[in-house]
């Protein structure tokens, strides 16, 4: 997948734990781990909306497109 997820960077900047973020956006820590480790195939708009709200950022801050990255 050429989409990179930067949740760990966002969490580090905000000094927030992954468990707290998972609780705040209403997903399981296991699912957040899937998302963080670039294993997710898709992200619901509702999840993205919650991520942006909790992390106070734009979708582009969480996801970037990397043309050279392949799986």
């Amino acid at each position: 997948m050429s989409i990179r997820v930067h949740i760990d960077i966002m969490l580090a900047r905000r000094k927030m734990s992954a468990g707290d973020l998972a609780n705040a956006i209403g997903i399981t820590p296991a699912n957040l781990s899937i998302l963080k480790n670039d294993k997710a195939k898709a992200v619901r708009f509702s999840t993205l909306e919650a991520l942006c709200r909790v992390l106070d950022c734009q979708p582009g801050d969480i996801f970037t497109f990397d043309n050279e990255k392949e799986d």
Binding site: N31, L32, I34, K39, A40, K41, A42, V43, R44, T47
Partner: peptide, 8 residues
């Protein structure tokens, strides 16, 4: 199902 399981 595989895709749905990996939809967050």
């Amino acid at each position: 199902k595989g895709e749905l399981d990996l939809t967050i």
